[in-house]
Design a binder for these strands. Sequence first.
DNA 1: AAACGGGCTGCAATCGGTTGCAAAGTCGCG
DNA 2: CGCGACTTTGCAACCGATTGCAGCCCGTTT
Lengths: 332, 332
Amino acid sequence: MPVTLKDVAQRAGVSRSAVSRTFTDGASVSPKMRRKVEKAASELGYSPNALASSLTTGRTKLIGLVSNNFHNPVFLEIFDLFTQGLQELGLRPLLVNLTDETEPDGSVQMLKQYSVDGVVLASSTLPPAFAQAYREAGLPVVHSFGRYSSAPTVHIVGIDNVECGRMAARELLARRYRRVGYLGGPADSTSSQDRLAGFQEEIEKNGGIGFSHSFAGAYSFDAGRAEMQRLLKADPAEAYFCGDDVLSIGALSAAEDAGLDVPGELGLIGLNDMEMARWENINLTTIRQPIRQIIRSSLELMVALLEDSERYPEARLFSCSVVQRGTLRPLP
Amino acid sequence: MPVTLKDVAQRAGVSRSAVSRTFTDGASVSPKMRRKVEKAASELGYSPNALASSLTTGRTKLIGLVSNNFHNPVFLEIFDLFTQGLQELGLRPLLVNLTDETEPDGSVQMLKQYSVDGVVLASSTLPPAFAQAYREAGLPVVHSFGRYSSAPTVHIVGIDNVECGRMAARELLARRYRRVGYLGGPADSTSSQDRLAGFQEEIEKNGGIGFSHSFAGAYSFDAGRAEMQRLLKADPAEAYFCGDDVLSIGALSAAEDAGLDVPGELGLIGLNDMEMARWENINLTTIRQPIRQIIRSSLELMVALLEDSERYPEARLFSCSVVQRGTLRPLP
DNA sequence: AAACGGGCTGCAATCGGTTGCAAAGTCGCG
DNA sequence: CGCGACTTTGCAACCGATTGCAGCCCGTTT
């Protein structure tokens, strides 16, 4: 049923090489030959089999798009941008959903079987073991939204989570909150830890501020809501830095339920500036993470890596900025 | 770098066929041989190249997962379920993001180049031309969340949108709303049209009810909000059936902004029952679409189609049910 | 002891393309 | 008209696997 190189060659009365060459640019083909072949090809509706050619060229143009964040709505934006970007580059995303049971080795295996040219890890909650495993398998890896480290072993594109923590702290301090808290994502997520570290550091630099922290079970609405409900039961802080917008929104809902006025009685600042954060019934003050830029840069880096897979690992960090909306009280 | 069949064969001192056979089940291999090969394979870290084998077997286990709904948060759930389901079946999702400029032919081309075994269309807003194009290219297609037709030319799994429209109408009528409206998604989306048709039919069956309708530019928060803002300017209806939860949430935000009490002054009913619909600060009355079942069934159908691609096209419809929450006034 | 039969194994062709190499074709120029 | 240089073309090997077929080995049966 599918029409192959040979069919086209036969129909055009030329050799298979000739056909192959008219479809790979940079090859020398006379205009006459090209016309003949193209005519035959279009009559037959031929399109080259990318997988077969990958056998000899060694490139599949397949990129593993790996994530474990399928519950945070911001990742829909992220997948949208990644897939569009990849498509524009002529690359194809092979989507991999890492559930809790998935082991690094299993996914490496799978990506190797499909000979992906590279792997984009899109996650802020992935244990470093995954990136390591891919790298050790010899795959070019870009970890987007990954943890910054001063000696990265894998290419990272993202933000400085520690600095974001500090930034949130400064924002709360400037507003004279005296007792503040950090409501993080999963305790074992690197982004969650780093944001805490920066936040705590900056708070403690200023003496006399009450500080506490706790973690939600996941970066999700439900987890944020549940954790805030727990906090509200016993002497909550005046303002919280939530490790992600979706947690903030959950927390917000818990606060409203409890009849608390936000920002009057409880202040909240999130992180991400997801689309929903600016919905008028949410109107969340938050720290914006420049998603588009991070993704664009990740893809550029991936392209470079495909050229030269031995490229020295680098960390690309983008600065974040506070978006003032309605969940923190105004500056004094 | 990558280790191949030949390497393993050499190391084990056997023929390549032997190695191949130990890795394909159902082939006859003696236990002794199997041990030898497996030893060599694991020492070398061999894993078979799925793409190379696809050349001779004709199956890639690649499934095109095609959608154009990257702005409706419910689709994150949908992608999550699809990718997990596919992975459990040993299939790999090749994600395709259909943007507005994408033409059916282009995407067919691409999917053919990568020899996908089948295509899952996950979209409620896709022009029928796409499904048709895939089908004509000889690809097994399942259109999930697609339009039901009594003479389907392509396998459909979804809901009866017309019936959902009627259901919404009955819900509003039972509450004695006298002037109702339909706030649909994109005017050219089939789901949007069908929901309107059912809704209007049922409303008009009951005389004396004021009816109006309009369409939002997209299934998105912003579009829903903008359209509701427009409606509120000039003599709005008492209650609206919104073609999708995300529209309802946008509409809700517009209503709250305008200082309207929901459901006191304005009633809203959505469709989907996305996760967010039950967030306490939204608490949307809506029609639940059984997403998990639709996806499970789509995958089962796809598996069946891979066995027998000539299978006669069928439509699988799942019934929806109303989820009572807080955006419609109580029954009299 | 010879014939039979079934289970394993290896050979070699094949899947759809790519590519180095050498032969063939084209062209200008003396 | 002949020669050299350059372009175009086809041959054939190869990428990493699968598979029909024929032959081998080995245990049974008579």
